[in-house]
């Protein structure tokens, strides 16, 4: 891993198009500003990781029997299997 020292308001440029700027340091919290083109998704890693895990768990294979679920549209929100 490349490790660089930066002061507040200093930046790092990645691939000539992604700018990562140290905006503020407050104790253990570092505020980082990121400028990236719209084709570059940016996520907090822990959020990315948990959604990725949830997606992998949700993937279903054809042929697998599934329960027939039927969520209610009313406020009771009860699922009634048929």
């Amino acid at each position: 891993m490349l490790i660089l020292s930066r002061k507040i308001n200093e930046s790092i440029i990645i691939d000539g198009r992604i700018v990562v700027k140290i905006v503020r340091v407050d104790g253990e919290i570092v505020k980082v500003g990121i400028e990236a083109p719209s084709d570059v998704p940016v996520h907090r890693q822990e959020v990315y990781d948990e959604i990725q895990r949830a997606n992998k768990e949700a993937l279903t294979r054809a042929g697998q029997p599934l329960p027939k679920l039927q969520p209610c549209k009313n406020s009771a929100k009860v699922l009634q299997p048929n």
Partner: peptide
């Protein structure tokens, strides 16, 4: 009445397909 449903049956039974393009894929399935 069989209470199970297979993906294949869903595809076969339904004429309503909507093709959706996800340029970034799904997280973990980019």
């Amino acid at each position: 009445m069989n209470s199970e449903l297979l993906i294949g049956e869903a595809a076969k039974d339904s004429a309503e397909h909507t093709d959706i393009h996800l340029p970034f894929g799904l997280l973990g399935f980019e």
